[in-house]
Computed example of a mutant assay.
Amino acid sequence: MKKLILAFAALSFILTSCSNNENDITSEQSKIDMSDFYVYTNADVDETSKLTATKSPIKSCYTMVNLNRLLKENPGLEKKMYDIEYFTRQFIAGKKPTGTPGGGPGGGTTDPIVDTDGDGTPDSSDLCPNEIGPSYNSGCPDNINDYTLTIPLVINIIEKSPGQVTDAQIDSQIAILNIDFDNRNLNKPDDLKIFTGVDADFDIKFTKHIVNRVSSKKKNWGTRDAMKFSSQGGIDATDTSTYLNIWVCEIGRGILGYAQFPGGPEVTDGVVIGPDYFGETGGNYGHGRTVTHEIGHWLNLRHIWGDGGCSDDDFVSDTPSSDGPNYGCPAYPTVNCNSTDMTMNYMDYVYDDCMYMFTNGQKDRASALFAIGGYRYSFVD
């Protein structure tokens, strides 16, 4: 009888524990507030007016205009993006498990230094061995093995003549991406003023998988994804579930680039960049940061001002509110919406040399994509 009583007590404890856990989960889910979520913006009007108002190149990202188009063409996309956002907010609200790729502070693992130069001693000489080339090595030392997620790139180049986009451009762009997403941009001052401690290392490493090239006399490819189809003279995407595809081609109308947010059609998933803004080419927008910006969109990051007024948000807790993009190299502080703008964030529109950081909140949004059940979990080995 005593054993039977103990057995019932144990069963009761288990059932109570399970019930409590279910209540905790239900309670946690009920806290997910989606009332501020939106997908459509005024980007169609805003971006067009910027391009019409100036004859000189300005930072012009057509991602939000592209999103509006895709939403109109794909009736189920809004719901899909809602579900991705819900999952993202659940992920951020909960405790991220240790070892989640790109999973925030404490989320990754730190490997020991590897004896890469073969001298028998794992030391500082083994850090960043030829990782980013002589022009960028001042970002070292960093342990190349610290990365927790590798994203292989498929570079699809549509050029007017063979070699228009050089191998050096390609290598420099990959180097820049690894610097930016590893929080090693040398333009970043030691003193970030009020933003100290907010800047983030994404724990992501980009590698070159393959470069595809075709020649085309087509002057401009526009923004309706024609470059992504061989049937239209472009290059078909390579398995977008495991590779980040980047198309390099003349877009036209002064547009530097555009990307596709998570949830869009798989066959067009990726980033499009004008050749003058891909890698190190010189000029205000010729230092590779357009690709950093567009990959930010591919990682589910909005423009830092939320593509609207002070009440619109980029859904990131540690970026201040603003009512529009910044250009050039703004003076500090630049104040809008009663707060200091984070003009140096990669998701603003300033010159390449004047942007140098992502935030921890932006990293959390990106990390949710690669968590178990996340939209881009297929990239995780």
Rank of each mutant, 00 (worst) to 15 (best):
M1F: 14
A331V: 15
A175F: 02
L127H: 09
G306Y: 03
V335Q: 10
K219H: 08
L256W: 00
G296K: 04
I14V: 15
M81H: 04
D353M: 13
I92M: 11
V165M: 00
G252L: 11
E78Y: 00
D126P: 00
A7H: 09
T334F: 08
E85R: 11
A43V: 06
C329T: 13
P75H: 12
E73Y: 05
T334D: 14
F87R: 09
D225N: 08
Y86N: 03
Q173I: 06
T116C: 11
D307T: 01
T52D: 07
P152V: 09
S30E: 11
V45T: 08
L369W: 01
A259R: 00
C337T: 09
Y332I: 03
P275S: 09
G308E: 04
F202C: 05
S321G: 09
L71Q: 04
P97Q: 11
D182G: 12
F229Y: 15
D83N: 15
L70E: 01
V39M: 01
N326W: 04
G106Y: 10
D182K: 06
D190V: 09
D381M: 08
Y277F: 12
D119A: 07
Q232F: 04
G163F: 04
P141K: 11
K95P: 06
D111A: 15
I144H: 14
G257T: 07
G282E: 06
D180E: 12
F91V: 05
M355Q: 15
A53T: 07
A366D: 03
P333Q: 09
H297A: 02
F181C: 02
Y38H: 05
Y136W: 11
P141F: 10
S138H: 14
V267I: 09
T16K: 05
C140R: 11
P57V: 07
Y346G: 12
T223W: 02
P152L: 09
G222H: 07
K31Y: 01
V248D: 06
G106K: 12
I273Q: 03
V380M: 08
G222F: 04
D239S: 07
E131Q: 10
T292N: 03
K2N: 10
K55P: 02
D269G: 06
D191V: 02
T268R: 12
P101I: 07
D236A: 07
G270C: 08
S231F: 10
F278I: 00
P97M: 12
Y86I: 00
L369E: 05
D83P: 03
E294P: 00
P112W: 11
L192R: 01
I304H: 08
T238I: 13
L6V: 03
S321Y: 11
C354A: 10
D225F: 14
E28M: 14
A53D: 10
C354V: 01
S230I: 12
D180H: 13
Y136R: 13
L299V: 05
S378T: 15
I179L: 13
D201N: 14
D239I: 05
T88R: 15
G308T: 08
V165K: 01
K160N: 12
G197C: 09
S317K: 15
S12F: 13
F229M: 12
V45A: 05
T319F: 03
N360V: 04
I210S: 13
